[in-house]
C-alpha cells in the first residue's frame, strides 16, 4: 500500500459511513458496529503482527485494559467517557510497552513471544476476576444514560460513526506508517531481524514502538466495546476470544496490509453471523453447533483457496503481481 492508499481509504470510509443511511436494519447496524470494533482491535494487532512479524496471542491484555479503564474511570472516578477514552488508550499503550519491554529484552520471538503475551493476558484475566476494584466476578456495570455527552447515543448510528471514525484513523495511521521510515524498519525486522540489526536498526526500540502503538489502538477498541455493551467482566474484557479474533482477522484479510484487518474482520464475523442465520436458527437450535461446523469448514476452504488472505485472492484473480508487503511471519 503506497502513496495511493488515501483514495481507497476515503472511498471505504465513505461507503461504510453511508451504510446506515440506506434501508438497513438495526441488526446489520449492531453487527457492523461490533465488527468494526473487532476490526479496530485487529488493526492494532496488524501493526505489530502484520508489519513487524511479532505474532501476539495476547492482545486481550490491551483490549481488556482499554475496556476496564473506560468503565472504571466512569464508574469509580466519575470521569466523562470522552475524557476517559484517551486515558484508556494511554493505559493500554503503557501495558503494551511494559509487556514489550520484558519480552523483547529477553529476545523472545515466534511462538515464545506469542505464548508469553498469552500468559500475560491470562494473568490479567484472573486478577480482574478476583480484584474488588474491577468489580471482581460480578463485573462492572456502566449506568445506562443515553446522552451524547455520555458517549451513549439515542441514535445508534452515531455510535457506529464514532467507531468508524476510529477505524478510519487507524487506516490512515497504518497507511502513513507503511510509508514511513519507521514502517520500513519494522518490515525489515520482520523479514530478517539479524540482518536489520546488522544494518544499524535499533530493533528493540522499533519493536517497543510498534507494540506500544499496537496496544494503544487495540485499547481504543476495548474502550469502545465497554461503551457499547455497558457491562464488563473478566472473561469479556481479557478473555481469549478477542486475542483470537484480533489475530485471525488480519490473516484472513491479508497480513501486513492496510485493509487486511478490516476486510478480515467483516468477512470472518459476517460469515459466522450468516451461517448462524442460515442454519443455526433454521433448526430452532435443535441441532446446536451445526452452523459453527459449517463456519469452520468454510474457514478451512477459504484458507485453501485464498492462502494469501482475501486481498491476496483478489490480487490473484485479476492477475496482478502481489504487493511486496504481505510476507509471512513465523508464530
Amino acid at each position: 500500500m503506497t502513496g495511493s492508499a488515501r483514495l481507497p481509504i476515503l472511498i471505504a470510509v465513505i461507503v461504510l459511513a453511508l451504510l446506515p443511511l440506506g434501508a438497513t436494519s438495526n441488526t446489520l447496524l449492531n453487527f457492523m458496529t461490533f465488527a468494526l470494533i473487532v476490526a479496530l482491535a485487529a488493526q492494532g494487532w496488524n501493526l505489530l503482527g502484520g508489519y513487524g512479524g511479532q505474532f501476539s496471542f495476547g492482545h486481550a491484555a490491551f483490549f481488556g485494559t482499554g475496556a476496564y479503564a473506560m468503565g472504571l474511570l466512569q464508574v469509580r472516578f466519575g470521569l466523562n467517557p470522552w475524557a476517559a477514552m484517551p486515558v484508556a488508550m494511554l493505559l493500554g499503550a503503557a501495558v503494551g510497552w511494559a509487556i514489550g519491554f520484558l519480552a523483547f529484552r529477553a529476545r523472545l520471538r515466534g511462538a515464545y513471544f506469542a505464548l508469553v503475551t498469552l500468559a500475560f493476558a491470562e494473568v490479567f484475566r484472573i486478577l480482574a476476576n478476583a480484584w474488588a476494584f474491577t468489580g471482581a466476578a460480578a463485573g462492572l456495570l456502566v449506568p445506562l444514560k443515553l446522552q451524547a455527552a455520555n458517549m451513549q447515543f439515542e441514535d445508534k448510528r452515531l455510535f457506529y460513526w464514532l467507531v468508524l471514525a476510529f477505524v478510519a484513523g487507524a487506516l490512515v495511521l497504518t497507511a502513513e506508517l507503511a510509508r514511513s521510515r519507521f514502517g520500513a524498519r519494522l518490515v525489515a525486522l520482520r523479514e530478517n531481524e539479524d540482518a536489520a540489526r546488522a544494518l544499524g536498526v535499533d530493533t528493540l526500540r522499533v519493536k517497543l514502538a510498534a507494540i506500544t502503538l499496537s496496544a494503544g489502538v487495540t485499547a481504543a477498541a476495548g474502550g469502545l466495546y465497554a461503551q457499547k455493551s455497558l457491562y464488563l467482566d473478566a472473561a469479556i474484557a481479557y478473555g481469549p476470544w478477542i486475542s483470537v479474533d484480533a489475530l485471525l482477522a488480519p490473516i484472513v484479510g491479508g497480513l501486513g496490509t492496510v485493509f487486511g484487518p478490516l476486510i478480515g474482520a467483516l468477512a470472518l464475523l459476517g460469515l459466522g453471523e450468516l451461517s448462524k442465520m442460515a442454519l443455526g436458527n433454521l433448526f430452532g437450535g435443535a441441532v446446536p453447533g451445526i452452523d459453527l461446523i459449517v463456519f469452520g469448514i468454510l474457514l478451512i476452504l477459504a484458507v485453501a483457496f485464498a492462502p494469501r488472505g482475501l486481498l491476496g485472492l483478489f490480487d490473484r484473480l485479476i492477475r496482478r503481481p502481489r504487493p511486496a508487503e504481505g510476507g509471512e511471519a513465523t508464530p
Binding site: L248, G289, L299
Partner: peptide, 16 residues
C-alpha cells in the same frame, strides 16, 4: 499463519 487458521477451523468443526 495459515496453519494457525486451518487448525483453528478444525477445532471449531470438531468441537461442534
Amino acid at each position: 499463519s495459515n496453519i494457525l487458521l486451518v487448525t483453528l477451523g478444525l477445532s471449531i468443526v470438531i468441537e461442534n
